[in-house]
Nucleic acid binder design. Structure first.
Lengths: 151, 151
DNA sequence: TCTGAAACCGTTCCCTC
DNA sequence: GAGGGAACGGTTTCAGA
C-alpha cells in the first residue's frame, strides 16, 4: 500500500480526531472534501485504515488495575487455541504470541486487584496453560492511539 | 463518572465505528440525535471518552516488526525521566512502569528487524538504562480497540 | 426534555486537468 | 487516474417552547 505525503497528513489529522469533517481535513491539506473522501475510501479499501474508534480512559470507567501476563503453554499449543481462550475475556485487551521463553504476552485491564486475580486464575486454569507470570502496571507513561506513520 | 445502560450502548457503537452519525446511534439506542450528542459531550467532559481516532494496520503501513521491551533502570529513575526518553521515539507505542524486576515495559513497532534493533540500541544507550530485555511478537492474536465497558 | 429550522456535512455524479 | 464543484438528502447544532 503506497501512501504519499497527503495521505499521511490526512491520516495524522484523523488519528488526532477521527470525527473531523472531510471539509476540515481538506482545508488543512489543500484538497476538496470529495477528494479527501476518495483518499480515505482508498485507504480503507487498501487496508491501511481498518476503522474508526473512540478512545476511552480506563480509570474513568472504573478499570483501576492493568498488567502484563506472560503465558507459558504446554508443548506446541497452536496460536488459534490461545486466541480462542483469551478472546472470551473482555479484560484481555491485547494478546500476541512471542519469541523467548514465554509463548504469549497478554495485556489485561481489570476493575481491581481481586478482579485481576480472578481473570488470571481463569486463564491459568486453561488446560493448555502450564503457568503464567504477571507484572502490574504502576503508572501508564505513554499510550499512543495508533501506529506511527511511515517516515 | 456514572454510566447508565444507554451510555454504555452509545460507547459500544462508537467503539465499533466512531464516525457513525448521532442519528444512527440514536436510532439504535432509542434516543434522538441531539440527546445522543448531549450524552457524548457529557462523556467527553467527564473524561470517560478522551477522543476519537482512526485504527491503522501496522503491517499495511510497512511496520513489520513488533516487540515488547523490558527496561531495567539504574537506581531510582523517576517515571518522568523514562517518559521523556521514550516519548521521542514514535516507534514506542505504549509504555508503563511496572512492578517486578524490570522498571518499565515498552511496546515498540518498527519497519524491520534492523530498525527495531536501532531503536533498541538508542533506548539502551540512555544514561539511566542499565539493560533491556526484549521479546519479538510472532503473531498478533488480539488487538482490542478500547477498554472494555463496566459490567 | 423535546421540536424545529438553519447551517453544515457526506455522498454521488459529472466535468476538467 | 485524480481533483473540483455542485446538488441532494441526511445530520448537527442551537434556540425556543
Amino acid at each position: 500500500m503506497e501512501l504519499d505525503r497527503v495521505d499521511q497528513e490526512i491520516i495524522a489529522m484523523l488519528v488526532d480526531d477521527a470525527r473531523r469533517s472531510y471539509a476540515e481535513v481538506g482545508a488543512s491539506v489543500g484538497l476538496s472534501a470529495s477528494a479527501v473522501k476518495r483518499r480515505v475510501d482508498r485507504l480503507r479499501a487498501g487496508g491501511a485504515i481498518t476503522g474508526f474508534t473512540v478512545r476511552l480512559d480506563p480509570a474513568a470507567l472504573g478499570w483501576a488495575v492493568e498488567g502484563y501476563v506472560e503465558l507459558y503453554c504446554r508443548n506446541s499449543t497452536p496460536p488459534r487455541t490461545i486466541h480462542a481462550a483469551v478472546d472470551r475475556f473482555p479484560e484481555v485487551v491485547d494478546a500476541s504470541t512471542v519469541s523467548g521463553e514465554a509463548d504469549a504476552v497478554l495485556r489485561i485491564v481489570a476493575a481491581d486487584m481481586r478482579h485481576f486475580e480472578q481473570v488470571l486464575e481463569q486463564i491459568g486454569a486453561q488446560p493448555f496453560v502450564a503457568r503464567t507470570k504477571s507484572v502490574l502496571v504502576l503508572s501508564p507513561l505513554l499510550r499512543r492511539p495508533a501506529t506511527p506513520l511511515p517516515h
